[in-house]
């Protein structure tokens, strides 16, 4: 029997709006398998998102969903989690949504260590608005706003999350559909703020301008340039150049925000 994705999808919403070969459909399937694998009840599950192609995802999922304003996925997620801590809250958004306009919300949610799962879909570009460079666009890469190549340095989302205090940080790619599913499960199960950065291809906004127009080629690129964390730690700086580690990059136990808050105000 084929995998029953339909039970977590809103009837009549597929086909989705994403372009042919957009990596987001692969991520959506990994997310569904993760929550299904954990046996999660749709009524106890909340998805929030900001604005962008990535942020369209909650519209397809048959759970409690909030498609909010640009960069504010985590603001709404925090409100939901504070009001109803028993719910599982997954806040998602693109690289632009989470690290440009929503960058402040992102670092402070990490610092706060609130028990929310944050999924950042990193396609290195503002996909929805036509391919402007984002904080994760590689240096020298082309975007509609950098026709001569990007002059800016790139944010490393996972490192940013670790530095800001997130207690679980992982990275995956759309090549690694099954490992991605497992990391999302681990992130959901982790108590505290967990971040999974997911590298995805945007053939339309990024690929076409950067000689990576084929969706399969973008997935092959992810395979060729990602290195498992265990192996990564044994590599020299020269060997690591141009590549990125995947897997669980950071995990620690530390006080969770709502528990600390409740203790402070005498609720527990």
């Amino acid at each position: 029997m084929a995998y029953d994705y339909a039970k977590y999808l809103r009837a009549g919403k597929i086909p989705h709006i994403w372009c042919p070969g957009c990596g987001y459909g692969i991520i959506m399937k990994s997310i569904i398998r993760a929550v299904d694998g954990l046996g999660m009840n749709k009524d106890d599950l909340v998805f929030t998102s900001g604005i962008g192609c990535a942020s369209r995802l909650p519209g397809y999922i048959d759970a409690n969903t909030l498609h909010t304003t640009h960069g504010r996925s985590l603001g709404f997620a925090t409100g939901v989690k504070m009001a109803k801590p028993e719910l599982n809250v997954i806040a998602l958004g693109g690289d632009g949504d989470m690290t440009a306009i929503g960058g402040n919300h992102f670092i402070h949610a990490c610092r706060r260590n609130i028990d929310i799962t944050c999924l950042v879909f990193n396609n290195y570009i503002y996909g929805m608005t036509g391919g402007q460079y984002s904080p994760t666009t590689p240096k020298a890469a082309r975007a509609t706003t950098s026709p001569y190549g990007n002059s800016d340095n790139q944010f490393d989302i996972a490192q940013l999350a670790i530095g800001a205090g997130a207690s679980f940080v992982a990275r995956s790619t759309t090549y690694h559909a099954v490992p991605m599913e497992k990391l999302i499960k681990q992130a959901i199960e982790h108590k505290g703020f967990s971040v999974v950065e997911i590298i995805a291809g945007c053939p339309t906004g990024y690929g076409r301008k950067n000689k990576l127009a084929s969706p399969a080629g973008m997935i092959e690129w992810q395979k060729a340039n990602s290195v498992n964390k265990v192996q990564w730690d044994k590599m020299t700086a020269e060997e690591q150049a141009g590549k990125f580690p995947i897997g669980v990059l950071h995990q620690e136990e530390k006080p969770e925000f709502i528990e600390a808050y409740d203790a402070n105000v005498g609720l527990s």
């Binding site: 084929a2 995998y3 597929i14 987001y24 459909g25 692969i26 399937k29 090549y175 559909a177 969706p215």
Partner: peptide, 13 residues
């Protein structure tokens, strides 16, 4: 193929 199809369009039995 089934895992990586972004569009729920291919199923392998």
């Amino acid at each position: 193929c089934e895992l990586r199809c972004p569009d729920f369009a291919i199923e392998v039995y």
